[in-house]
């Protein structure tokens, strides 16, 4: 278990202020924050590349606050990959293996194994200067995994990839985590947090605003910044059963537009896309549910309704509509949203 206690760091005119959190073994911990929030500095402090001014870092109850970088065994994948341009793909991976002092045969086997995990076996002898972003990302990942790190630290690993590569890498990260790899992943993209994390921390201007499970943080934001920054409240683990149908909470069937079948993933519905009505609407929207309003509270210039249809859904609505339909807790309503408003992300 990694415990970060009251870490502070002044870096040029940026201040990382009293950061504390802990990451259990096999956690997938996502630190969410805008650019300039201090995510990279925090990762580099954990890795030991930057020294904190104050505070302690403990790993498995051992104080490693001033442990050498090389001794920490935390593998950091940089945002721009930091692949050594004068070495081949294989040599890049070998670089990390050198400190393991393996014999020749085990080294060779290890390289093949790593290349297979991240699917770069065909690239091993290539020069790194001719690789694409996605390929470089995989090389960087293989190189870092070669360390067999206790914790894998990822700095915006998906940000420079196109959508298809994003899906592939997300699945790979998921797989690594399932196989027991502890991961700390920093990102500005809440979708990555929703789809990958079992624990999320929101970092803003060098301060940790909130830590919890994705459900805790996204559905009960403790501050205005968190509420505004995290774009989505309705997200559910799901399995696509047959084409254009997904099931959430084991009993609620949602229509969506997707080419996937028999795939697990995460389903997202924006609160803005949900319509409320007294009677069931005769409209083209495929998803119609009857449920009870649990809560109504103001946000910004609108209101947010929480409606229980078997799962809790959040819907945004104007004050005018609140008054017109006399919406309040306890009232039963119909809700609907279009199949095309449902977003599915494979994990």
């Amino acid at each position: 278990m990694l415990t970060v206690n009251n870490i502070s760091k002044k870096y040029k005119d940026f201040v990382l202020d009293d950061i504390s959190f802990s990451v259990n073994n096999e956690d997938y911990f996502v630190i969410l924050g805008q650019s300039g929030a201090g995510k990279t500095i925090l990762l580099e402090i954990i890795a030991g590349l930057i020294k904190q001014d104050k505070g302690k870092i403990l790993f498995n109850n051992k104080d490693i606050s001033f442990e050498k970088i090389q001794k920490r065994n935390f593998g950091l994948v940089f945002q721009d990959f930091a692949i050594f341009p004068h070495l081949s793909v294989k040599e890049n991976i070998l670089y990390a293996l050198k400190s393991k002092k393996l014999d020749k045969i085990s080294t060779k086997e290890k390289i093949q194994e790593l290349a297979k995990v991240v699917n770069i076996s065909h690239l091993l002898h290539r020069n790194t200067t001719t690789l694409s972003g996605g390929e470089l990302q995989r090389v960087a990942l293989a190189r870092t995994l070669a360390l067999e790190p206790d914790i894998l630290l990822l700095d915006e690993p998906l940000s420079s990839l196109d959508i298809i590569l994003k899906d592939e890498l997300r699945a790979l990260l998921r797989k690594l985590n399932k196989n027991g790899q502890t991961i700390i992943h920093v990102t500005h993209d809440y979708i990555e947090a929703v789809t990958l994390a079992n624990k999320v921390a929101v970092l803003h201007n060098g301060k940790l605003l909130q830590i919890g499970t994705p459900k805790d943080v996204f559905q009960n934001p403790e501050s205005k910044f968190v509420a505004n920054f995290i774009g989505i409240k309705n997200f559910f683990k799901t399995k696509i059963t047959n084409k254009n149908k997904a099931v959430i909470n084991n009993n609620i069937e949602i229509s969506l537009v997707s080419d996937n079948t028999e795939t697990e993933g995460c389903l997202l519905i924006r609160s803005e896309d949900i319509l409320i009505s007294d009677k069931q609407l005769e409209a083209s929207a495929m998803n119609n549910f009857y449920g009870e309003i649990i809560d109504v509270y103001p946000i910004e210039s609108n209101y947010e309704l929480i409606i229980d249809i078997g799962v809790k859904l959040s819907a945004f609505i104007t004050e005018t509509s609140i008054n017109k339909f006399k919406l309040q807790a306890g009232k039963k309503v119909w809700i609907c949203f279009k199949a095309s408003a449902v977003k599915f992300i494979k994990t």
């Binding site: 990390a96 400190s99 360390l147």
Partner: peptide
């Protein structure tokens, strides 16, 4: 030479001497 490459090498377990000579 980008400082990040040296940082990456340190993170991969290389000593400062090795980073200097190999990167």
């Amino acid at each position: 030479v980008p400082v990040r490459l040296e940082k990456a090498a340190l993170n991969l377990g290389a000593s400062h001497f090795r980073v200097f000579f190999s990167i």
